[in-house]
């Protein structure tokens, strides 16, 4: 396949960037999107150019490190995948592909396609945990039976990989899906209920402080989320927060 890539290049956080066009051929449909970028970079290095910086690590869709806004969609046109799982068979010979970083005020660009998502970490620091010491001197794991449906829903919320596609895709750069997934995971479990009110207040407070936008329920995040985190979680957080703030 022959493709034209239009890639955002930005030297560092301070300088302004621009879209630069790169032609590329010999792309195999079996390649992953990142392998295609590897090939591009190999060529750039051999030519003496600066390779395109992009985040990636596990390349199997679980670490949440890879990002990229491809042809107007977070993680590209496929559904239920991260960029590293996106394969070139999703594109046609001769296609032009826009590749941009995940954009949000709370995700400043570090270089090219690499962004700083530490705002997500700070939200977690504010309350994304259950305050239990790791001494191991706790009750036996089977002491509290947990309704399987709740346990499963908690798990579904917990599968969030923190990639930031929800923010990137949201027209408001809202982090609600991410935050609500964590809030929900714990709110659905008996051991998490103890400090549920403080957790949701603190996490939302931090979320607002980071400069994310507000949720307007467009539902785009759910569609683009590689792990299919449900909007139900956002509603649950709305509920939790409402109750916590009027209590």
């Amino acid at each position: 396949m022959k493709l034209t890539l239009k890639i955002w290049r930005q030297k560092n956080a301070k300088e302004t960037g621009k879209i630069v066009e790169y032609p590329i051929d010999n792309v195999s449909p079996d390649m992953s999107f990142l392998e295609m970028l590897d090939v591009l970079n190999e060529g750039l290095i051999n030519k003496g150019d600066d390779p395109v910086a992009f985040d990636h690590d596990c390349r199997e869709g679980i670490c949440g490190m890879c990002s990229l806004f491809i042809n107007g969609e977070a993680h590209g046109p496929d559904r239920g995948v991260t960029t590293c799982q996106l394969h070139m068979r999703m594109f046609k010979d001769g296609d032009t592909i826009f590749i941009e970083p995940f954009r949000a005020k709370a995700f400043p660009v570090i270089k090219d396609l690499v962004v700083d998502r530490s705002s997500f970490d700070r939200i977690q620091h504010a309350g994304g945990f259950i305050s239990v010491n790791t001494s191991g001197n706790t009750i036996d794991a089977n002491t509290i039976p947990i309704n399987k449906h709740d346990a499963d829903r908690s798990f579904d919320a917990a599968t969030c990989i923190g990639c930031g596609a929800c923010v990137a895709t949201c027209k408001n750069s809202s982090a609600m899906l991410f935050v609500s997934a964590k809030v929900s995971q714990f709110a659905l479990l008996p051991q998490g209920k103890v400090e549920a009110a403080d957790r949701v207040l603190n996490m939302v407070n931090q979320m607002d402080a980071e400069g994310f936008g507000n949720c307007t329920n467009t539902g785009a995040c759910e569609v683009e989320c590689p792990k299919g985190i449900s909007l139900e979680n956002i509603a649950r957080m709305n509920r939790e927060y409402l109750v916590a703030s009027i209590k």
Binding site: F129, I130, V132, T134, G136, T138, I139, D140, A141, N142, P145, I146, N147, K148, A151, D152, S154, F155, A158, Q185, F186, L189, Q191, G192
Partner: peptide, 19 residues
């Protein structure tokens, strides 16, 4: 396992609610 459950790790459960 005790530790992880206390931390809110959603390990798989049976319908009876046990691990």
């Amino acid at each position: 396992i005790d530790q992880c459950v206390a931390q809110g790790v959603p390990l798989a459960r049976e319908y009876g609610g046990l691990l």
